[in-house]
């Protein structure tokens, strides 16, 4: 299998492992920064999670979250970190598509594309 530019399963596993770790570290750092800002500004407020109101629209989608975090709002930055966290497994699947293409494995390219499409439907679709 390890001929020319084709990746071996072991190489793919190494890259995926690094990808997951890097994604988790970056996401955690962003969440911690956003959390620190939120707590320093609003730490004295009283939270209430007893009744479900749902998040404001700005914290429900990619565009709104980017907007909120750009404005330096703590809750927006936490949500950006969570979005990065959510993107990590999606990136992992996207990378697997590339890996299977390089392994010339058409069957698994198709299988992986189905998984990727399902994930993108969940994240980008209107629900």
């Amino acid at each position: 299998m390890a001929t020319g530019s084709r990746w071996t399963d072991e190489q793919v596993e190494q890259i995926i492992g690094n990808l997951l770790r890097a994604g988790l570290i970056v996401a955690t750092l962003v969440v911690v920064i956003g959390g620190a800002i939120t707590l320093s500004r609003h730490g004295a407020q009283t939270p209430d999670y007893r009744i479900f109101h749902g998040e404001p629209a700005a914290l429900r989608g990619v565009v709104g979250i980017l907007h909120e975090s750009e404005a330096g709002r703590g809750r927006g930055i936490v949500q950006l970190g969570l979005l990065l966290l959510l993107a990590t497994p999606v990136l992992r699947v996207a990378f697997s598509v590339v890996a299977f293409v390089r392994q010339r494995d058409g069957l698994y390219v198709s299988i992986t594309l189905i998984v990727l499409a399902t994930l993108l439907y969940s994240i980008a679709g209107r629900h």
Binding site: L20, V31, G34, G35, T38, P47, Y49, H53, G54, E55, P56, L59, R60, G61, G74, R75, G76, V78, Q79, L82, L83, L86, T88, P89, V90, R92, V93, V115, T118, L119, Y121, S122, I123, A124, G125, R126, H127
Partner: peptide
């Protein structure tokens, strides 16, 4: 992780993910 990400996109869009609670 991949399974949870598939639900999380919908949870996010429906407003289930609150940063103040999710962070801790």
């Amino acid at each position: 992780g991949v399974t949870a990400a598939a639900s999380a996109g919908i949870y996010l869009a429906r407003g289930y993910i609150d940063p103040g609670l999710a962070m801790p």
